[in-house]
Design a protein around this nucleic acid. Sequence first.
DNA 1: TTTTGTTGATTGATCCGTCAATAAAAAATA
DNA 2: TATTTTTTATTGACGGATCAATCAACAAAA
Lengths: 196, 196
Amino acid sequence: MPKVGMEPLRRRALIDATISAIGERGSLDVTMSEIAGRAGVSSALAHHYFGAKDELLLATMRHILAELTADMRRALRSPSTARQRVSAVVAVNFSDAQFQPETIAAWLAFYVEAQKSAALRRLLKVYARRLHSNLLSGLTGILPRSEADRVAEATAALIDGLYIRRALKDGVPNAVTAIALIEDYLETKLSRRSAQ
Amino acid sequence: MPKVGMEPLRRRALIDATISAIGERGSLDVTMSEIAGRAGVSSALAHHYFGAKDELLLATMRHILAELTADMRRALRSPSTARQRVSAVVAVNFSDAQFQPETIAAWLAFYVEAQKSAALRRLLKVYARRLHSNLLSGLTGILPRSEADRVAEATAALIDGLYIRRALKDGVPNAVTAIALIEDYLETKLSRRSAQ
DNA sequence: TTTTGTTGATTGATCCGTCAATAAAAAATA
DNA sequence: TATTTTTTATTGACGGATCAATCAACAAAA
């Protein structure tokens, strides 16, 4: 029963289905039929709207990154001090919307795929750079530049590391613990310098 | 020209070929033919010695872990103080033998595959637990138990995070920088307590 | 003559991407 | 308004490619 104006709805449904399929399977080894089935359409329709599978995967990653970016922008509106800004950036990565098993699995899978796909690699680099500069914007108010750089790098590595360990259901059990761990690091690194 | 006693040589060659193939492709999506070709044999022979592809991949991961374990044991012989033991554990993960692009790519790929394969997941959990206890054995000599636990967790996350970022050729450019970053963390965490 | 090593050829399954066909809505035309 | 035409939505069926795994066959050593 074809109704007009389906395109945006189908695209969104297919992207959601892609995330959940990847999340469940734990890798990008999901078939177009599997994804289309979850979205309640035929695989031919998925191809109709996205062309090749690569493009659906790319669109999916773009969608995840866009959500993260939006969350980040929202989170960066309220904090006033530099120190609070750093905490806000960290917290976003472990918010309910981001720290979901499905999303984490997708992140990990996309990280791997990025080694094959230049387009995906570019996307992830944009995210990495943005995370770094967001962290830095807070840290430079507290630490000298070169040390702020190093702390930002360590914080980013901690975030990635906690994600990967979460994907294996090993190590940190939940978002609260993960945040506490990073905050503990930041506190020992910043407390003496800034004294609040 | 069949010579007797080929089995161990072929097995080893096939495992090496698997690592290099995965390292180059950046994922486990390598064909048996590709691997066999690199090892200079037919794909049929790879199946002859390893049965299914899964088992070759599993054997490869086991091999990587065994090398890491051996390196770790060696590294843990020399250090005398608790503090030095912690540094030794960290250093092994970034030694020339371990911090190779191929090996890093393989690690990452296996992390993803572990979400599908229970056998692989078990292997990685063994490694994670061992890393944790190795770190802890040094840290408990310096910090109270609960805090030692947290520092070990953070250090492990840092190692994983730096690996993943290295795989993307983003962030830390080399092993020396990576080690310095973790040592910097450890130093701020431990210096006040242990005073050398 | 049995064991060990080895491969080319083949089978069977999976899966991406295409295409022709169908049907409803919208637009254009009479 | 009634009709034709075009656009949008949708799918089943299929071609073609890839690959894991098997097997029969062959050769050298024991």
